[in-house]
């Protein structure tokens, strides 16, 4: 029970935050952070646990966003239902792509998923009569729940963060179960995992499909809250950004995803004048991360604490 305390305190903090920031632009940023936390948690599952380097998370995010936009705005489907249809659709696409592609390993898998992302992006541009083409999809219907229409960022804040925390909780539960162990085992050594009865193909697919469904949900929520989406959101750079979100804070930890996403989505706000150099900053972060802190920020802190403790014992 004591272990739940930090999580409960965090939830309390999240729910009280809007009161402190009333009227601030940061509410808008926090709504965006919340949506991306959902997608980045999926990356943590596939890349962090199952160890499969997938570079198409942004494509699944875009699929969810366009599914929601087209279903609600063009076909007047209820937004909540559209979110669920979008998740199922994206999950099926992920299954179709993942079944053959997840047989590949390492760089080959990365390139194959990168290729899939490019296909999705060009489809979004090409089928302009449905998607609005390169100009994007405008005036998306806002989220509606039991007759209540969500309009402002303050109104989106609570549902989006509630979903984000729920996703974090479910993923943490999965990670600490047989499923998480199987994924971690196949990441560590797929030959040994298979010999110990782990159906590696099945767990790879589970991680991939689940992560795609998270991305789809995040994309759908993004489409409604932002009310405008464009094919740019399926770009490779966005997938890379999501991987950094999962790794920067500390891979395979709930708070790591939260920290990583917050940093990655705050940088453009803090460094507004650097907007043109955003790719440079992202790239630099990636290089520093890979070279100096593969365990992320939490890893750096843990190592420091361990050093202090050892110092104290002496």
């Amino acid at each position: 029970m004591i272990r739940a305390v930090p999580y409960l305190l965090f939830a309390l903090f999240i729910y009280l935050l809007p009161a402190l920031l009333a009227g601030s632009y940061w509410i808008h940023v926090l709504v965006i952070i919340g949506t991306y936390v959902i997608a980045a948690t999926g990356v943590d599952l596939v890349v962090g646990f199952a160890g499969q380097l997938s570079l198409c998370q942004a494509a699944f995010f875009a699929l969810g966003a366009y599914a929601s936009a087209i279903l609600t705005t063009t076909y007047h489907v209820d937004p909540m239902l559209a979110l669920i249809i979008g998740m199922i659709f994206t999950g099926l696409v992920a299954y179709g792509v993942g079944a053959p592609v997840l047989r590949l390993k390492g760089y080959y898998l990365a390139i194959a998923t990168l290729g899939f992302g490019l296909i999705i992006q060009s489809c979004l541009v090409t089928f302009a009569s449905y998607t609005g083409g390169p100009d994007g999809f405008r005036d998306i219907v806002p989220l509606r729940m039991a007759g209540y229409i969500f309009k402002t960022d303050e109104q989106y804040y609570y549902p989006i963060w509630t979903v984000a925390m729920l996703i974090l909780l479910l993923t943490r539960n999965i990670a600490r179960s047989k499923v998480g162990r199987a994924m971690l085992a196949l990441r560590g050594d797929d030959v040994a995992a298979s010999a110990m009865g782990v159906d590696i193909a099945r767990y790879k697919i589970q991680a991939f499909v689940l992560s795609a469904m998270y991305a789809s949900l995040a994309g759908g929520l993004y489409a409604h809250s932002n009310r405008f989406i464009s094919p740019q959101m399926a770009d490779l750079s966005r997938s890379v950004e999501m991987i950094i979100m999962a790794v920067l804070g500390g891979i395979r930890t709930v708070f790591g995803v939260l920290i990583g996403t917050t940093i990655m989505k705050s940088i453009p706000e803090v460094l507004e004048s650097f907007l043109d150099y955003q790719m440079v900053v992202t790239g630099a972060i990636l290089i520093v991360l890979l070279l100096y802190m593969p365990q992320g920020l939490i890893g750096v802190v843990r190592a420091a604490v361990a050093r202090l403790r050892r110092g104290g014992e002496r």
């Binding site: 047989k178 162990r181 199987a182 971690l184 085992a185 560590g188 050594d189 040994a192 995992a193 782990v198």
Partner: peptide, 13 residues
């Protein structure tokens, strides 16, 4: 051994 896992977790797999 499965890296990033404890001895017990290895055996649990």
């Amino acid at each position: 051994p499965f890296a990033e896992m404890s001895v017990l977790e290895n055996v649990m797999v």
